[in-house]
Design a protein around this nucleic acid. Sequence first.
DNA 1: TCCGCATATGTACGAACGTACGTATCGAAT
DNA 2: ATTCGATACGTACGTTCGTACATATGCGGA
Lengths: 193, 193
Amino acid sequence: MRTEGGTRRARRFDPERRQRILDAAIEVIAEHGVAGTTHRLIAAAADVPLGSLTYHFAGLDQLLAQAFTRLAERLSRAYAAHFDGVRDRDGLVEAVTDMVHGNAGAAAGEWAVSYELYLAALRDPALRSVTEEWMRTSRTVLERFVDPDTARGLDALIEGLLMHRMLSTTPFPREIIRGAVARAVAPPPERPA
Amino acid sequence: MRTEGGTRRARRFDPERRQRILDAAIEVIAEHGVAGTTHRLIAAAADVPLGSLTYHFAGLDQLLAQAFTRLAERLSRAYAAHFDGVRDRDGLVEAVTDMVHGNAGAAAGEWAVSYELYLAALRDPALRSVTEEWMRTSRTVLERFVDPDTARGLDALIEGLLMHRMLSTTPFPREIIRGAVARAVAPPPERPA
DNA sequence: TCCGCATATGTACGAACGTACGTATCGAAT
DNA sequence: ATTCGATACGTACGTTCGTACATATGCGGA
């Protein structure tokens, strides 16, 4: 008989535990930042014992790296899915505007976590491959509609717009976003001699 | 006689100590990130005793907030100075391209610290006023050359380009940067009905 | 010259962290 | 039914952190 009232045991075979821990880690990062993320907080969020983390992962660094990898994959899928119905450049402008303006795709919290990833990758070369892959994916999606150079610029613009929108306390008018996006995908202007 | 060989005392009147501590804090953030920034590291970098930090600042949070404020002021001055000689839109494109491409303005490390500030501000409302002021300043500089809406988009583009360049391991061709910037400041394209 | 007090410093403490490891558990093999 | 080994768990240890505070220092007034 399980000791229901005493110290909890049980829940032995829990094959999805690893992934649940990784998801919990992302939640904790979203709420407390990488700086405030600890084994104990993750364990509490995933509802697993503390020792389970050291059992499944060699250390906190490796746990975070795998959590970020999982996040990048999820973001990539959501990113690609967001542009699924787009057919032409006008549709692209609208879709990008939607994404930046917030009426689509991942929640604001998920973007915040991706910035945690960026900053962590800036200091930890082991995370570079994750950001590199995520950027390659997003650019590849955009390249379905525009040439590679334009995609690169548009990708950077999206990044910057998202960041500004997150940091800004005043609203970011949709028309301004649309205007900036439209110019980014328009043919380049004439260059004076 | 000073106890040169024993435990160091002296250096009582040191009126610039506060600012030196703040500068040291920025250095430590640049090297270790906000997460890895501690009283002890800052004290070592500034060459002051540990107790000096708790004497001059009420807590680590307030110290970091003041350090970030100082950084933002420095960045604002550098930003404005970078566009001092710009006369027309072509010059603007060139100046922005220079800044993003790295041949100008603040060192790469300083930009990294500004991203630490952004992320910290995302979680700490007390830092919002710092980022708000810094963004207002940079946009105001750009508004000397383009209309406010365009300035807003250009500002976001610069942010995104800088971030991508910092994270990218492969080089960011100057021509791509210039192309993206040129489109951002060009008149908006016709919009189909 | 001597003293008082604002200023500055060294150290100690409680809390929280990452991690290691001895022990408990349960399915499978016999 | 019993045992065995892989799997999972609870706890304790050493370290490092932020912060408080008693003590030392040196300049202005007497």
